[in-house]
Design a protein around this nucleic acid. Structure first.
Length: 428
RNA sequence: GCCGUCGUGGCUCAGCCCGGUAGAGCGGCUGGCUGUUAACCAGUCGGUCAAAGGUCCGAAUCCUUUCGACGGCGCCA
């Protein structure tokens, strides 16, 4: 008796063979002579039939409730009447854990599903999304490995802000106050002086009271940093990474996209080089669409969406006014008002990544800190990096969940992560 | 932080505008029936309408406050 995964049966590998599957009851329909059990495991769902003639199996099947766990044995065969095209004629059914009445049924609201997150994760939708998420992370690591990057593990507890202080989560650390990191960038910058090309995939925390479908207070941040590089190198790397992720996903995740009803064809359009426009060009394009924007304003979400609609695929906006960018952004030596910063935008979501060239000159860096009313003495170790063998270097950070929302056409970022944390929800 | 929508049995909703002590479907239970596709038919159990206060002879329905949920903007990834 071969113990198989449901996907093997659905792939036609077990036709007319005696098989055994383990999983949970997804649906049940009972008649006088026949019970249909739809059984799910991590790989898919399959319809199973239990006939009354088999008294032992029938008695077990009658007891089964939705979400009960079981082992089921029988012959796998193609059947046009079965969803998925294959069916198991059950010969033996064995209950492992009999479930109480499952609270999630056909009629369910967003609110209810969120309250039942720990059970909703069993749904086919969440199952498939988490599967693709894992693959996207694998493809990302593939690309980093291929391009000679070393994965590193930065701290989550930090003592000083990376971005502005307003969005930090503070916490009690014995008798002191520490913060949860908003970005691992500064720590990656430390590590480029030994490992050179480094990256991490780690959580970042933002205490922004954002109420949108694009924000989490805890999100996974894919960040990289490397020396001896400029803005062109940065954009080339980022578009190469995106192309690789999209290409591998398009190859390997067709069934998952089909089950979610997500458009996989857009991934094929992700090819290097990506369109690149400067901030000034973006403003001009938006002005042509009657926007009241003027040079110096930051791009809002609606502006980003307007631009993204024009391209219909990922693209870059670079060369921002330095006033709207962080202190560590290097400024152009020929145009001191311009920061060497670049955002990657995608349709429907807007920004999914921000990167740029970091200021490698100590005095310029101190000057930038003062302009933004930061105290250089709070960043002594960061300044040390410029004192001892400074190098031109670049880096970026991409929101993993935002990437997934775009790829999988998700309605809300909370569905891109198993246990979403938002301003109001953090259970379970 | 600002703005909007919503809160009725386990779940999804109707009723609210034009006040008179709650109605349907799903689920549960009982029975019937069917190669079914989150089937169908019959019966049955189940709520005092988020909370508090007010108006009124009378409030789920009108008014006030509070709480909660969801979304938009801003901020960002």
């Amino acid at each position: 008796m071969a113990l198989v995964k449901i996907s093997e049966i659905l792939g036609g590998d077990c036709t007319d063979k005696q098989v055994s599957v383990r999983g949970w009851v997804y649906r049940k329909r009972q008649g006088k002579e026949l019970i249909f059990l739809v059984v799910r495991d991590a790989t898919g769902v399959i319809q199973c039939t239990v006939k009354k003639a088999n008294a032992t199996a029938w008695a077990e099947a009658e007891k089964l409730t939705i979400e009960s766990s079981l082992t089921l044995e029988g012959v796998a065969k193609p059947d046009t009447r079965a969803p998925g095209g294959y069916e198991i004629a059950a010969e033996a059914v064995s209950i492992i854990g009999l479930a109480e009445v499952f609270p999630i049924a056909k009629d369910k609201s967003e609110e209810f599903i969120r309250d039942m997150r720990h059970l909703w994760l069993r749904s086919r939708k969440m199952n498939v999304v988490m599967d693709v998420r894992a693959k996207v992370l694998e493809y990302s690591r593939e690309y980093f490995r291929k391009t000679c990057f070393t994965e590193v593990s930065p701290p989550m507890f930090i003592s000083a802000a990376v971005e502005g202080g307003s969005t930090l989560f503070g916490l009690k650390y014995f008798d002191q106050t520490l913060y949860l990191t908003q970005s691992s960038q500064l720590y990656l910058e430390i590590l480029i002086y030994s490992l050179e090309n480094v990256y991490c995939i780690a959580p970042s925390f933002r205490a922004e009271k954002s109420r949108t479908i694009r924000h989490l207070t805890e999100y996974w941040h894919m960040e990289a940093e490397w020396p001896f590089a400029d803005m062109n190198d940065l954009m080339k790397f980022e578009e190469g990474l995106m192309e690789h992720i999209c290409k591998r996903t398009a190859e390997d995740c067709q069934k998952e996209f089909a089950e979610l009803g997500a458009d996989i064809s857009k991934l094929a359009q992700v090819q290097v080089p990506f369109p690149r426009i400067t901030y000034a060009e973006a403003i001009d394009r938006l002005k042509a669409k009657n926007s009241a924007l003027k040079w110096g304003d930051d791009l809002g979400y609606e502006d980003e969406k307007l631009l993204a609609e024009e391209f219909g695929k990922p693209f870059f906006v670079y060369d921002y006014p330095k006033a709207i960018k962080a202190f560590y952004c290097k400024t152009r030596r020929d145009q001191p008002e311009i920061a060497l910063s670049v955002d990657m935008m995608v349709p429907r979501i807007g920004e999914i990544s921000t990167g740029g060239q970091r200021e490698e000159d100590k005095d310029q860096l101190i000057q930038r800190m003062k302009e933004q009313e930061l105290k250089p003495e709070d960043y002594e170790w960061y300044l040390d990096l410029r004192r001892y063998g400074t190098v031109p270097h670049v880096g970026f950070g991409m929101g993993v969940e935002r990437l997934l929302v775009w790829m999988l056409d998700l309605d809300n970022i909370i569905d891109a992560i198993p246990f979403p944390r938002t301003t109001r929800r953090f259970y379970p």
